[in-house]
Design a protein around this nucleic acid. Structure first.
Length: 605
RNA sequence: UGCCUGAUGGUGUAAUGGUAGCACAGGCGACUUUGACUCGCCUAGUCAUGGUUCGAAUCCAUGUCGGGCAGCCA
């Protein structure tokens, strides 16, 4: 038996995809439909990326659809600002990969009443932005949202009441808690559990009408107060909240809870596979209870759970991320050190690298902690073949090439990306005075030091070999310049091009370079599991940002934020979104570059 | 001491009763006008104890350890 070549990058497989594949084989659904259902109460982060890639990935691999849906059933926590940032981040992350699977709904639409197998039903149809853009008459669309199902959800609640499966409870929040019992002790039935259908209908109608203050009554499912599963002890379906909703305004004062709204939202949208994280395993019987209690005519969605992503040296808790922002430990939600998608984007990390990373981590039920090295590897893998090589000196030290006259310009040719099949080039100017990296010179070199040292030779990349003759110091003894001789016969085309030296270093012309602010980022925390600390603020890395004024080769003056650069021998960089674009004018703010990630450095270790 | 869930090299993940493989990390070496990339080699694993079986990471039993659950949050 010859083994098929493994292609995990192209066709990832995991226990959820196996279930989907089996459902496809057995023709259980006409189309595979998944969904990404964030609550609009914060910014998306690297952990969400795993869920997004799983849901859109499954849709993509099965010619299916993935809905972006806002799980906006709690008006107290949600804001329109978040729906906008989430929509932007999702589109960015799937761009060029699963755009065609992304489903929205028609703007303002709510589920339509239909008949299926002679039974009344509701369904909301998808709209694909990727398709309407090609059409003449553009349909306005928007993401799905639980709040656009409030009418249907209310109707379904009425059905549950009429079937005797839900009741209005007058217990206070505190008493509800007491009656619920504890994990090892059964709860007690609410005294309101036996109310008549008529009374329940009356009370629930009046709840909706706004007759009662917050917290005075709730609609509860009638399941089992003695269930060993706490979530089956008559969980609440509706609570009273006299609070305006970012989407429905003042229209409602009762709002459905997650366990009631989520499964039905899935059903209304025709979701087939409802994928969530492990903490919802205990909720699954409730998910199924609601759906099966309602005698719905179409195929029911099913919930599957996987372990969320844990990344070393990273925090994703909304509360803690907010604390970093509020206490000005970072510049904002999109600070390049933040694990938010907007932060990673600003840092210059390509969406494809994030996708590759979360795919490489896999999907299981094991609560794991992934090393940051895996993420960094994915980023470098994406950047190496695409980033344009440039020369930049972060911490300059001046070299004088004593045998090159002042004013003379020696033209050199640099390769833009050696990884290209047919690499392109650009011109570089070698002049009498150049800057090199101060790390690339050592007066007292450590063992196996390949770089510039007294009496030693190195190659200036793309130019020629130079030899250090003299170290010039000021009165305090610090080095002010290095006087070297350039061996011009070792240039490309020269008779001694083939001459080998151990070290090759980067440089820029002192007279033909530009200044730029370069922000060097390091990990935000000093410990692998900052979330496990009693006080995570105490393990914030005080050196997570270093700002330097660097000398860049002049071609970098025309950089745009979309460009990805590798500053040779240093790392990958991109223009910050706040940086002025285009050639710097006199007196104008200078360019700002972010270091996306350093190059691997096996010498520094 | 109720319910749910899980345990494979340092890390993550495959193997669905039949050769424990891959990636990352680490080590050594080759190549190199990036101490990068690339290439080669190496290190290292089935939680424990029993059982079923010709054969067990996989099935069964017991135990150990980890994670989750008692919001009118999602």
């Amino acid at each position: 038996m010859s083994a098929e070549p493994a292609t995990p990058a192209l066709a990832p497989t995991d226990f959820i995809r196996d279930i989907v594949a089996a459902d496809v084989t057995e023709n259980r659904y006409a189309k595979i439909v998944t969904r990404f259902p964030p609550e609009p109460n914060g910014y998306l982060h690297i952990g969400h990326a795993k869920s997004i890639c799983l849901n859109f990935g499954i849709a993509r691999e099965n010619n299916g659809q993935c809905n972006l849906r806002f799980d906006d059933t709690n008006p107290a926590k949600e804001e329109i600002e978040y729906v906008d940032s989430i929509t932007t981040d999702v589109k960015w992350l799937i761009s060029g990969w699963a755009d065609h699977c992304l489903a929205f709904k028609a703007k303002g639409a709510s589920p339509e009443k239909t008949t299926v197998n002679g039974l009344p039903d509701y369904f909301i149809a998808p709209v694909f932005e990727s398709k309407i853009e090609n059409q003449k008459s553009k349909i306005d669309s928007e993401p799905f949202s639980a709040s656009s199902y409030f009418d249907q959800l209310y109707e379904y609640a009425l059905v549950l009441i009429k079937k005797g499966q839900a009741y209005v409870c007058d217990l206070s929040p505190e008493d509800t808690d007491k009656y619920r019992g504890s994990p090892d002790k059964p709860g007690q039935d609410s005294p309101f559990r036996t109310r008549s259908v008529a009374e329940n209908l009356d009370l629930f109608t009046r709840m909706k009408a706004g007759e009662f203050p917050d917290g005075t009554r709730s609609l509860r499912s009638k399941i089992d107060m003695a269930s060993p599963n706490m979530w089956l002890r008559d969980p609440l379906l509706y609570r009273i909240r006299h609070t305006a909703h970012h989407h429905t305004g003042d229209q409602w004062c009762i709002y459905p809870l997650y366990d009631y709204a989520h499964c039905l939202s899935d059903y209304l949208e025709g979701i087939t596979h409802s994928i969530c994280t492990l903490e919802f395993v205990d909720h699954r019987p409730l998910y199924d209870w609601v759906l099966t209690s309602l005698d719905l005519p179409r195929a029911l969605p099913h919930q599957y759970e996987f372990a969320k992503l844990n990344l070393g040296y990273t925090i994703v808790s909304k509360r803690k991320l907010l604390q970093l922002v509020n206490e000005k430990l970072v510049s904002g939600w999109d600070d390049p050190r933040m694990p938010t998608l907007s932060g990673l984007r600003r840092r210059g990390i390509p969406a494809s690298a994030i996708r590759q990373f979360v795919t490489s981590v896999g999907v299981t039920k094991f609560d794991s902690l992934t090393e940051v090295a895996v993420f960094e590897n994915a980023v470098r893998n994406e950047l190496n073949p695409t980033a344009q090589r440039r020369l930049a000196v972060l911490k300059p030290i001046k070299i004088v090439l004593t045998n090159i006259p002042a004013g003379e310009v020696i033209a050199c040719t640099a390769t833009n990306n050696p990884q290209d099949e047919t690499p392109t080039t650009r011109p570089l100017a070698l002049t009498r005075e150049v800057f090199i990296e101060s790390d690339d010179f050592a007066e007292v070199p450590p063992p196996k030091y390949f770089r510039l040292k007294p009496g030693g030779e190195v190659r200036l990349k793309y130019a020629c070999i130079i030899k250090l003759d003299e170290i010039v110091k000021d009165a305090t003894g610090s080095v002010t310049e290095l006087r070297c001789t350039a061996d011009l016969t070792t240039r490309a085309g020269g008779i001694n091009v083939e001459k080998k030296v151990k070290g090759t270093i980067h440089w820029v012309s002192a007279t033909q370079c530009i200044d730029a602010e370069v922000r060097l980022y390091d990990r935000l925390f000093n410990v692998t599991e900052p979330a496990a600390e009693l006080d995570f603020l105490r393990v914030v890395n005080p050196q997570s940002l270093e700002v330097v004024t660097a000398k860049l080769e002049s071609s970098l003056a025309s950089a745009t934020p979309a460009d990805r650069f590798q500053f040779e021998r240093i790392g990958y960089f991109s223009l910050d979104k706040d940086s002025p674009v285009g050639p710097p004018l006199a007196g104008a703010p200078r360019l700002i570059f972010n270091r996306t990630i350093s190059l691997k450095d096996t010498w520094a270790k």
